[in-house]
Amino acid sequence: MEIKTDDYRVWIEGSNIFFDGAMRLASSEAGAPVMALANSILASNPSTITLDLKDLHFLNSSGINLLAKFTIEVRKHPDVRLVVRGTPDIPWQSKSLPNLKKLHPALVLLMN
């Protein structure tokens, strides 16, 4: 499964969700296909879900809110481990990804 636009691409490999490009969502509705894709992985109840954001160069606040909403969804499933992979080389990630851990302390945030 894949969502592809001129600016960004989101796809699934196993229970890993990869993000690439620059995502500037106009609203939460604009992020609905990405949310549906992520929720479809959660519905299969894997032991771990990984969000790989290392190639997502830009994410506006609507997009960050989408990640936060999905984190809250996963929080409702204590048996599912959520791993978020980011990089300190992309400033929005080092600034905003730690907020996800505040929402879900069991989340594993890997910044390397």
Binding site: S28, N65, A68, I72, N99
Partner: peptide
């Protein structure tokens, strides 16, 4: 406030203007 409003917005997604940005 950011964390509180993210939680509130997730519970009630119909709010047009969240202030999260």
């Amino acid at each position: 406030l950011l964390i509180q409003r993210i939680e509130a917005n997730a519970a009630n997604p119909d709010v047009a203007r969240s202030g999260l940005g």
